[in-house]
Amino acid sequence: MEDLSAHLNSADPATGLRAVGALHRLAEQVEAAHVRLAREQGWSWEQIGDALGVSRQSVHAKYGK
């Protein structure tokens, strides 16, 4: 944690804000891959929504056919 705050202090805003964007993008990519996997393994949209902390509808609207 000490390490992270030292990094945060040394980074300029352009780098820091890009890192935030990169984390959002990573989250989207990891989410898409694992929602697909969960569906292949027979998870319901409701189970996936609960695991992600979002509604069944929103996960279905995002990834459903």
């Binding site: 040394s10 780098t15 890192a19 964007g21 990169a22 891959a33 995002k62």
Partner: peptide, 27 residues
């Protein structure tokens, strides 16, 4: 690469993670 460098600069190492390439259906 710009993303990876920015993450590294703030102390986040994503290691061997390879982006799967496609995300949700286009909105």
């Amino acid at each position: 690469d710009l993303d990876l460098r920015a993450l590294k600069a703030v102390g986040i190492d994503v290691g061997s993670f390879q982006p799967p390439g496609s995300t949700s259906k286009p909105r």
